[in-house]
Design a protein around this nucleic acid. Structure first.
Length: 550
DNA sequence: TGCATGGGCGCC
DNA sequence: AAAGGGCGCCCATGCA
C-alpha cells in the first residue's frame, strides 16, 4: 500500500485579487506534478506564510518561483500604519487569525497580475477550517493588502520590498532545507587540534582544563573561569579591581593570570558554542541545518533559529566544504553599509568615494592623511552613533567633507530621540519606541536623556542597516530567479548572512555562478538605488572550502 | 527542577 | 557634555 500522494487546494484569483469562483474559476485540487507545471507560467502564488506552507511543497519536489506572502506583507504594512497606539489594521489581522470574515476593502485596486491562492488542504485538527472559508479568508486578505499598498504615498518601492520579502520567505525555506555543506570530520579534527580530544565522561577538554589550572594557580586558589563573579573576587584578592571580566578590560591588566585566562575564554567559547555537541545537533548528513528566519530582525535582516547559523566562527570555517566535484561560491558585498549610506543620502562626495574598490582607502586619502584605520573607525562610528573616543573626534572631518550623508544620519537620530519612526530606502519602518520608553524619556533626567540618545542611535543605524537589508533581499531574489530559470544548472543557495551569499554548484558552473552573483548585485543596485552612482560591488570567489574565501 | 536575567562573546 | 547598531547562544546565578 503506497502512501497517499499529497495534494493542494488551489484557487484561481481574478486580476483584482477577487476569487472568481462565481464566474467559472473553481478551486482545484492539484498534485505536486500539476503544481510544478502550473508554476512554469510564473504565477504569483498567494501564501499565508511560506514558512507554514512551503516546506511540504518543497518535500514533494515543488519549487515556487514567485509569491505574495500574506504574513510578510502584513508585517511591512503594519509597521507603516500608525506611529502610536494600536495600528488600524491589527483588528483585521486578529479577525483573520480566528477565521472570522475580514471587512471588505472598498478601495482595493486591481493587482498587477493574476494570482492563484495556494495552501495545504486542511490538516486534521481540533476544528479544521472549511476549504471555502480558507479561500475566502485568503482572497480577502490579499485584496485588503493590495488596497493598502496602493494607498501608500510611494507604493512602487514598497511593492518591490513586498516582492523581495515574499521571495525571501521562499528562499529561507529552501536554504533551511538545503543546508550548508559541512564536513563533520574536518570539524572534529579542528576541535581536537585546538582543545584536545573530545572528553569522554564530561569535564573540560584537556587543553581547556590546563588553561583553567594555570589561571587558578596564578590567582592562588580555586576559581571557576566561567564565573564572572568568581573571577572578580579572585582578582580582588590579588589587589586588582575589575569593572568587568570582558576580554578588552582584561587586556589592559598586567597579571600572570591574564594570558591563560584570555586563551581560556577564546577556547571555551569555541567548545560550548560550536563544539562536539553543536556538531552532533546541527550537522546532519554533511549539512548544517540551521533554520533561517527571513526579516527576523526589525531592520529586515534575517535571523536564524537554532545552530547559531549567523555566527559561524572563522576558526571553524574550514569545515564548510563543497562536495567532491562541487564548488562553493562565496559572494559578499564589500563595505556595503557606507555605500548604502552614500546612496540613500545622495551625498555627491561620498558617492564619488564609493566608486572605489576599497572605499576606506579613498576616504583615508580624502581627509584622514592616508590613515585607513582611522577613516574606517570614523565611518563606522558615524553610522553607529559613537561620539566618544577617537571616532568622536574624527567625526568633524566627516561632517565637513560629507555633509549630506552626515546630516541624514543626524536627522535619523533626532527623529528617534523624539520618539519618531524612520524608514529604509524601500520603506520598511522602524518600530515605535515602547510606552515604557515614552514614560522614562518624558522626564528631564540623566536617565531620560540616555534612553533618548540610545533610541536615537538605533534609528540612526536603522536607516543604513535596513536599507542594506533591502538591497540584499533584492539581490538574493534576483539571483534566485536566475537559478530557477536554469542559468546555472545544479547550483543552489546554501547560506545567506546579511551581505554574503554562499552557493553550492557543480564545479563546471562556478564561473557562471560568480558572474550571476555580480550581475544580480548590479541589477539590485539599479532597482533599489536607481539614482545613485555609488557601487555595491560583489566579489565572488570559487573555493572548495569556506575558510579560503577570505 | 525549571525559568528569567545578566555577563560575555561570536558573527555582520 | 555627549560613552557604537543589530542579533543568538552559552554559562552562572537567583528565584519560585
Amino acid at each position: 500500500m503506497g502512501r497517499a500522494q499529497p495534494r493542494w487546494l488551489v484557487q484561481p484569483l481574478g486580476a483584482d485579487g477577487t476569487p472568481y469562483r462565481a464566474d467559472g474559476g473553481s478551486p482545484t485540487v492539484m498534485t505536486a506534478a500539476q503544481l510544478a507545471a502550473a508554476d512554469a507560467g510564473r504565477p504569483r502564488w498567494v501564501l499565508d506564510g511560506a514558512d507554514r506552507h512551503y516546506p511540504a511543497l518543497l518535500r514533494a519536489g515543488v519549487r515556487l518561483t514567485r509569491c505574495h506572502d500574506i504574513v510578510m506583507t502584513e508585517r511591512l504594512l503594519q509597521g507603516r500604519v500608525g506611529e502610536f497606539g494600536v495600528p488600524v489594521a491589527a483588528a483585521a489581522v486578529v479577525a483573520r487569525a480566528t477565521g472570522a470574515p475580514v471587512p471588505a476593502d472598498p478601495g482595493a485596486q486591481p493587482a498587477a497580475d493574476a494570482v492563484p491562492a495556494l495552501f495545504d488542504t486542511p490538516a486534521a485538527g481540533p476544528q479544521p477550517e472549511r476549504p471555502d472559508a480558507v479561500l475566502d479568508r485568503l482572497g480577502a486578505a490579499l485584496r485588503d493588502q493590495l488596497g493598502r499598498l496602493s494607498r501608500q504615498p510611494q507604493p512602487a518601492p514598497l511593492r518591490l520590498l513586498v516582492a523581495a520579502d515574499s521571495t525571501s520567505a521562499l528562499a529561507a525555506v529552501e536554504l533551511s532545507a538545503a543546508g550548508m555543506p559541512w564536513d563533520a570530520d574536518e570539524h572534529d579534527r579542528l576541535l581536537s587540534a585546538l582543545l584536545g580530544p573530545r572528553p569522554r565522561h564530561g569535564g573540560r577538554p584537556a587543553k581547556l582544563q590546563a588553561l583553567a589550572d594555570q589561571v587558578a594557580a596564578a590567582l592562588g586558589g580555586r576559581v571557576n573561569p566561567d564565573s564572572p563573579t568568581d573571577l572578580r573576587q579572585a582578582f580582588y584578592r590579588n589587589g586588582i579591581e575589575l569593572t568587568s571580566t570582558r576580554s578588552w578590560v582584561l587586556k589592559s591588566i598586567e597579571h600572570p593570570a591574564i594570558a591563560p585566562l584570555l586563551a581560556y575564554k577564546e577556547l571555551a567559547r569555541l567548545y560550548t558554542a560550536n563544539g562536539w555537541n553543536w556538531l552532533s545537533t546541527w550537522v546532519v548528513e554533511g549539512r548544517l541545518h540551521t533554520e533561517f528566519v527571513p526579516a527576523g530582525v526589525v531592520s529586515g535582516r534575517w535571523a536564524t533559529r537554532g545552530g547559531g547559523g549567523l555566527q559561524l566562527p572563522r576558526a571553524l570555517r574550514a569545515a564548510g566544504r563543497a562536495r567532491s566535484g562541487w564548488t562553493l561560491v562565496v559572494a559578499d558585498a564589500a563595505q556595503l553599509e557606507p555605500r548604502v549610506l552614500a546612496a540613500v543620502s545622495a551625498d555627491p562626495a561620498l558617492q564619488q568615494i564609493c566608486r572605489q574598490d576599497d572605499l576606506y582607502v579613498a576616504l583615508a586619502a580624502d581627509g584622514f592623511g592616508g590613515d585607513r584605520a582611522a577613516a574606517k573607525l570614523a565611518m563606522l562610528g558615524a553610522m553607529y552613533g559613537q561620539t566618544s573616543g577617537e571616532a568622536g573626534r574624527l567625526l568633524a572631518t566627516l561632517r565637513a567633507r560629507y555633509p549630506a550623508s552626515m546630516a541624514l544620519l543626524q536627522r535619523a537620530a533626532d527623529t528617534g530621540e523624539a520618539g519618531g519612526v524612520v524608514h529604509s530606502v524601500l520603506g520598511r519602518a522602524s518600530p515605535p519606541p515602547s510606552e515604557a520608553w515614552r514614560t522614562v524619556t518624558a522626564a528631564d533626567t540623566p536617565r531620560a536623556r540616555e534612553q533618548a540618545r540610545s533610541w536615537g542611535r538605533f534609528t540612526r543605524n536603522f536607516v543604513v542597516q535596513a536599507s542594506a537589508a533591502d538591497w540584499a533581499a533584492v539581490w538574493l531574489s534576483l539571483l534566485r530567479a536566475e537559478l530557477l530559470a536554469g542559468a546555472a544548472p545544479g547550483a543552489e543557495l546554501v547560506f545567506f548572512q546579511h551581505d554574503e551569499l554562499i552557493l553550492h554548484c557543480p564545479s563546471e558552473q562556478a564561473q557562471t555562478v560568480c558572474e550571476l552573483a555580480r550581475s544580480t548585485a548590479d541589477a539590485a543596485r539599479a532597482l533599489v538605488f536607481p539614482r545613485s552612482t555609488a557601487a555595491t560591488p560583489v566579489r565572488p570567489v570559487a573555493v572548495g572550502c569556506y575558510a579560503d574565501a577570505k
